[in-house]
Write a protein that binds this DNA or RNA. Structure first.
Lengths: 238, 238
DNA sequence: ATGACTAATAGTCACTACGACTATAAAGGG
DNA sequence: CCCTTTATAGTCGTAGTGACTATTAGTCAT
């Protein structure tokens, strides 16, 4: 392969982040208002160019911090989604974008950052037409996260370090858009080894309206065996 | 975002393909012997530069045809794996590579192609140290395919248009490295709607040593509900 | 307090899925 | 013809799951 022959090609590499969280019982995405052309004034996913000395993962974390001013990225779950490389996806030049799905518990307040006029959490359904192909990236992220809830412990990434089973169930219900039976959900989660583990001596007392719930932490397992399948929308046999 | 500021950055975008097939009851990967530096003479995954006017998917198909001389790419299943972007993954320049997992039934004979001195099917275990980070890409592809066999109909991508349940079972056994109970596997596959459908009036007669097996085609389903979980290596509860 | 309301947790029951089997059928090879 | 091989049929006990009912332990309004 002749490298130098291609070294002058006008390829730019960017990252785009579909950052999801759960607020007020609804799925929210983190969007920024673009300050520059193209699509100035439109809403878009946070993202930006990968620098010459960093990986896409590093660039994703940096851009997220820069554009949205989020300070606490400790609980951030970051995961490659896929790479979008259609030649015409950016009207100005050839841009290949590595997209990420990111999950965050307890959404912190974003501040508009360097390249973005403003950053805001927007309910997933109301994340209107976005710039570039970001609508599709966001939809792909939602689909991927929904699928991974079935067979991985990903749901805990939406939760703070200590959480109740009710909160965990809300994650599933919110992302899937379904209602789950509480006792059955509880039985299933507790029967899956390594999914969650009880916090030694605590129960959330004040705040909630009902009986205080026990607190749990994410367990050591990464995958769910057996999986927690989402209910069949219609005549699916399982 | 100031596009022009980055337009000169020496980013090259390539594709790499982990092409898998099953031959003689073993998992094989398609490798090429590199003709140029770096890593001249080493074995590597097929791949190459993305052209300015094509997507990564298009480039993947083109490179596969060019480098390995495979003519029949009709049954090829191509799927993005992930993008590898560590700054030092190529010793000569900054290369971001979009990796693909590809599945092919009935491995055709490859011919060395344009950039590759030679192309060959190599048993997965004997795919020694490869150039760049291709060992990792190949391992990631294997892991991904193994996982997707559990909850998607991907296994049929390893099979010709018409196949027996024995062949389908061999796909699972080969990729997972396990042995499955034949009657149970059969029951499970036939009980999953849309996974396979019987070919109207046929049964493979000659060739095999035992009772002739019925022929099946891939069904319309894309995902498996419920999933076909691989047996627990040890004390996993399911 | 006291009773309504809410949410967490415990438990039941029937049905289905699945792992581990045994048995039979239909080919080929000595 | 028997023996081997592979496909297919069927059985049985158990674990997992959906749809429930019941109890417990808090808050809130009166």
């Amino acid at each position: 392969m002749d490298y130098d022959k291609y070294a002058h090609e006008p390829f730019a590499v960017t990252v785009d982040l579909a950052v999801l969280t759960i607020a007020e019982g609804a799925l929210h995405a983190l969007l920024v208002e673009r300050g520059q052309e193209p699509y100035a004034g439109h809403w878009a996913l946070p993202g930006g160019f990968v620098h010459p000395d960093e990986s896409a993962e590093t660039a994703a974390r940096r851009e997220l911090a820069e554009e949205t001013g989020l300070s606490d990225l400790s609980g951030l779950h970051l995961e490659q989604l896929r790479t979008y490389s259609e030649p015409d996806r950016d009207p100005r030049m050839r841009v290949v974008s590595v997209a990420f799905a990111a999950l965050l518990p307890d959404p912190p307040e974003p501040h508009g950052g360097s390249d973005a006029a403003e950053a805001r959490w927007v309910p997933y359904d109301k994340a209107g037409p976005l710039a570039f192909d970001h609508d599709r990236i966001l939809a792909d992220a939602h689909e991927r996260v929904g699928a991974k809830l079935e067979y991985t412990c990903l749901a805990t990434a939406f939760c703070p370090p200590e959480f109740t089973l009710g909160e965990l169930q809300q994650v599933y219900e919110t992302v899937w858009g379904t209602v789950l039976d509480r006792p059955n959900f509880r039985r299933k989660v507790l029967a899956t080894p390594g999914f969650v583990e009880a916090v030694p001596g605590a129960a959330r007392l004040t705040g909630g309206r009902g009986k205080p719930a026990a607190l749990y932490r994410a367990g050591p397992a990464a995958t769910l065996h057996p999986p927690l399948l989402r209910p069949s929308p219609e005549g699916r046999p399982a």
